[in-house]
Design a protein around this nucleic acid. Structure first.
Length: 937
RNA sequence: GGGCCUGUAGCUCAGUUCGGUUAGAGCGCACGCCUGAUAAGCGUGAGGUCGAUGGUUCAAAUCCAUCCAGGCCCA
């Protein structure tokens, strides 16, 4: 007789090979046609909500691995909050306006753009954004991210655009939106402002001049030795044309400066460290340092402008360097970013007497009407004539050029719109709100606090085409900004109906409410502002346009989750727009993740060739493995990815999958409703297994709560390997296979395994939605079993299944077992045994250990997976002495008796049973309870 | 250059808050067993100057300083 047929071997249709990359798309479309997301929403109606508000990715290009990390983390959180008992809707969004899209459309259009209206260009940009929204939407869905994909929020939706305008108007209404001049890159040929991304750097030859600025104040105040002398501060510049706009000379607060006496009794001031080099440049051999001092003695002293009758103030700034020049920096706040920033601190005007063509205005007198670069020569001549030009050479250096016409650009101050950090207390209130938010990790608080504390007013102007305009009107007569509730609502209604395009398509009277009158001068003629809002404003107000505008969401959000760069980006703009209009932070908690780096921890870049594309990972391993990668990493720090790491995860996946498959195979004849064994009738080891499971559940739920997913991954994986596969399931095989199918012994094991796999599947569901669903489908049917695992809740730890006393005994037994396996291994290498069932084991125990182990003696054979196991008191001779446990000796000998052909245990009873001479008494007893009619045939 | 952060076995992570016995786990690797989870399963073993240096202390992966490497954001 073939006794193998009398065994209950595992059977399941659950495949060993996952074939993820092929099967995932099928699963996704099945979920989609079952409208799973909608069903989850319906099922969780009335529960407390958990709102994770999605930060909108930019609708340009394909997703990259960092976007995948971000979206998968969000999905894990959404799914886990959902399964923890919340109603957790997910509304994804896209950021649609802005320069990069306009830039790419520009490239596509080429020369055609010049013949198009702004409205036509905007339509092209809209179509471009739509295309990439569709691409990215499919890519996100492929990651297994579940959400409201058919109704995402888009910053270019008409209603969203209307809300952007409305929020902008609110800042104008309360008076924190104001106009001021600020230098920007300007192309004189294209007559347009340029963003940093539109600048290319090329080498250029410029004049390099050293100019004396005569000190007007009494030099004795600086140093007594300078009393009565003619003193001048020496500056260096490569843009003489900016000298007409000079308002100051900047020194570094930490540098030493020297007063150098030269021929004729004149004294020159410059950085101590640069004296020698400069004197050489000036061709002055005969000089003497008469005094040295720190820069602060010069602060707020006045110099004479070299060719105008006005002062140039001496100021201090950290941007001054000793790399070139004199350590005294010519400062024209209207023509340089650093000059402007330092000028702000001294209340200097962003003076910029240059028009759109790059030509000096009439204000400058001497050089009016000249193109700035051409004026360099005339200015240098004037300096020479005035006797203030110390040296002049040419220099080749890297200089910014226009990306389109390739000509050198200038820095020029033009009117820009700002949101004041001070006028309505925006900075102070934002800082207070920061302390009401939970920052995870906690250092996020320091990071954003420092930024808000130090940032300048928010420049919201962009001289672009693709975006939402700054919707304010300006009185033609008195230049006053016009904004009131009626105007705000009028703009909102028109934008909501037609989009922001109406601003460019309709006339001012059409855009304003009837009878609008300037509150300042009573005039009724207005102009509209042309500038576009900074796109950070667009996404910043998503808290208003999404959270507040959809009735199933809440304001503030429970959580914002983005990369740590967003402390300056979205977390920042969302905070300012919300505090400015609603006095509160738009989020209760902010979670940040690090960046994806390569195997060496280096950032990914095309030039290094270390970029990992999500699609490549999905095609090779499946989205599930990518998701496991996300869950296995401690994302608060930077996250490494490499083929080696993915391969490791792939191995781990197979282990989890196989463990699940083994359990499913052993549950094929198990109906939990009929066959489940009550806990008090279950075998000890099965009860111990359920006890351990409670710990796993508890740990996992806690980790989901604190967003520490790598803890779950490690716990789940270790549980599968150590607790289940190498211990519990290995021991169970004998009982499962050889006991009669419906026996208590087997049903007890099945009861435990069913609880284990059910819990495991639920715990892994947020991380591995595909595999969890697959397991769910194969789990035995019970009444009210949900169609999808994504409709059910997490398992709840059950105190009734815990038994600490039992567990303590088993933990001791596990330590003993570990020592026995070592002894068995030694016997195996000594060729005493092969399989552990070839062995008979005797353990010698100290009194303490014996007290625990004696009651296990009956089961010890099966627990150790040997043919015979006996316990004895005290030391054994000729035995293996335990290394890790005191008072334990193990003696291994070949098992006596024939090997039972059915259960493979060596036992004396084999051969003694007449009907079945090749099997043991235990097996023959089992057979007696079975219907053998099928098998014998 | 400044702000914030990170650095524990080949890999992914514990341990660092409140210093205390030979620094842990799993994977991978090597070797062995099994062939009734089989493109599976079990076991044993080797692997770390805890980024470096200096300091505080009876005692440092843990506290302090400096440096090195890397990341994000600024300049």
């Amino acid at each position: 007789m073939d006794y193998k047929k009398t065994l209950n071997l595992p059977h399941t249709g659950f495949p060993m090979k996952a074939n993820l990359s092929q099967k995932e798309p099928k699963q996704l479309s099945a979920w989609e046609s079952a409208e799973l997301y909608q069903r989850v929403r319906e099922a969780s109606k009335g529960r407390p909500t958990f709102i994770l508000h999605d930060g909108p990715p930019y609708a340009n290009g394909h997703i990259h691995i960092g976007t995948a990390l971000n979206k998968i983390l969000k999905d894990i959180i959404i799914r886990s909050r959902q399964m923890a008992g919340f109603d957790a809707p997910y509304v994804p969004g896209w950021d649609c306006h802005g320069l990069p899209i306009e830039h790419n459309v520009d490239k596509e259009l080429g020369a055609k753009k010049k013949e198009m209206t702004q409205a036509q260009v905007r339509r092209q940009c809209r179509a471009y954004a739509e295309k990439f929204i569709d691409i990215q939407r499919e890519e996100f869905k492929r990651l297994g991210v579940m959400g409201e994909w058919d109704n995402p929020y888009l910053t270019m939706n008409y209603r969203y655009e209307a809300i952007i305008a409305r929020e902008c108007c609110k800042f104008a209404l309360e008076g924190s939106l104001f106009r001021s001049k600020k230098p920007i890159h300007w192309c004189c040929n294209c007559k347009t402002a340029l963003a940093e991304a539109e600048i290319e750097y090329h080498d250029e030859t410029s004049p390099s001049v050293y100019v004396k600025f005569a000190l007007k104040d009494d030099p004795a105040q600086i140093d007594a030795r300078l009393a009565g002398r003619k003193v001048a501060v020496v500056i260096w510049t490569t843009t003489p044309w900016t000298l007409p706009a000079n308002l100051a000379v900047a020194l570094h607060p930490d540098f030493d400066y020297a007063a150098v006496a030269v021929a004729g009794g004149e004294v020159l001031i410059l950085a101590r460290e640069l004296v020698e080099a400069c004197m050489q440049t000036f061709g002055i051999a005969d000089y003497e340092i008469v005094a040295e001092f720190k820069a602060d003695v010069l602060e707020n002293k006045r110099c004479q402008h070299p060719f105008y009758d006005r002062d140039s103030l001496i100021i201090l700034g950290d941007h001054v360097t000793l790399e070139a020049g004199t350590g005294c920096v010519h400062t024209a706040p209207g023509h340089g970013r650093e000059d402007y920033d330092v000028g702000l601190q001294y209340g200097l005007d962003a003076y910029s007497p240059v028009n759109d063509n790059g030509v000096f205005t009439d204000e400058v007198g001497l050089f009016a009407g000249q193109f700035v670069f051409k004026a360099n020569a005339a200015i240098n001549q004037t300096l020479a004539d005035k006797g203030v030009l110390l040296a002049k050479t040419d220099i080749r250096h890297s200089y910014p050029h226009c990306w389109r016409c390739k000509r050198p650009v200038i820095f020029r101050a033009t009117p820009q719109w700002f949101i004041s950090m001070e006028k309505t207390g925006l900075r102070k209130k934002s800082l207070e709100e920061i302390d009401r938010v939970q920052w995870i990790p906690h250092w996020g608080r320091e990071r954003i606090y420092g930024m808000i504390e130090n940032r300048p007013d928010w420049c919201v102007s962009r001289q672009r085409a693709w975006g939402v305009p700054i919707t304010v009107f300006i009185c033609e007569k008195c230049d006053t900004v016009h904004m009131d509730e009626a105007t705000m609502n009028h703009i909102f209604d028109q934008f909501a109906a037609h989009g922001a395009d109406v601003w460019f398509e309709k006339s001012v009277p059409e855009l304003m409410p009837k009878d609008a009158v300037c509150t300042h001068c009573g005039h009724t003629g207005f102009t509209k502002e042309d500038d576009i809002l900074d796109v950070w404003f667009d996404s910043g107000v998503s808290q208003a346009a999404v959270l507040e505008d959809r009735d199933y969401l809440t304001w503030p959000a429970d959580l914002y989750l983005e990369g740590s760069d967003q402390h300056r980006g979205w977390f920042h703009s969302a905070l300012l727009t919300a505090v400015g209009t609603r006095q509160k932070a738009p989020y209760k908690a902010v979670l940040t993740h690090g960046f994806v780096v390569d195997a060496e921890g280096k950032k990914m870049s095309k030039s290094l060739g270390n970029v990992v594309a999500p699609k490549a990972v999905i095609d090779k391993y499946g989205a599930e493995i990518l998701r496991m990668w996300v869950s296995a990493s401690d994302y608060r720090d930077d996250v490494r990815i490499s083929d080696n790491i993915l391969k490791q995860l792939s191995d781990a996946y197979r282990r989890i999958r196989n463990t699940s498959r083994f359990i499913l195979g052993n549950l094929n004849d198990f109906d939990p409703q009929k066959d489940a064994v009550p806990i008090d009738q279950m075998l000890d080891i099965d009860r111990f297994a359920l006890h351990k499971l409670q710990g796993v559940i508890e740990r996992a739920l806690k980790a989901y709560d604190t967003y520490e997913f790598h803890v779950i991954y490690h716990r789940l994986y270790n549980y599968c390997t150590v607790d289940l596969s190498a211990f519990y399931l290995d021991i169970l095989k004998d009982r499962l296979y050889t006991s009669p199918a419906a026996s208590l012994a087997r049903r007890s094991a099945q009861t435990a395994m069913y609880a284990i796999l059910d819990a495991m599947a639920r715990i892994m569901a947020p991380i591995m939605p595909f595999t969890a669903e697959e397991i769910w489908a194969y789990l035995p049917a019970v009444a009210d079993k949900a169609e999808s695992i994504h409709l059910v809740s997490f398992p709840k730890p059950d105190a009734a299944l815990r038994d600490e006393t039992l567990a303590a005994k088993w933990e001791t037994l596990i330590k003993v077992r570990a020592e026995v396996t070592k002894a068995l291994e030694q016997a195996r290498s000594d060729k005493v045994i092969g399989h552990s069932l070839d062995a008979a084991v005797t353990v010698g125990l100290s009194d303490d250990l014996y007290a625990v182990m004696a009651e296990f003696e009956t089961d010890l054979r099966s627990i150790l997976i040997v043919s015979r196991a006996t316990v004895a008191k005290g030391e054994l001779t000729d035995a293996y002495k335990a290394q890790e446990v005191e008072g334990l000796w193990v003696k291994v000998a070949p098992a006596k008796g024939e090997k039972c052909q059915r259960c493979w245990v060596h036992d004396d009873s084999v051969g003694s049973i007449a009907d079945h001479p090749t099997i043991c008494a235990r097996c023959s007893g089992a057979l007696a309870q079975m219907d053998l009619s099928d098998m014998e045939a």
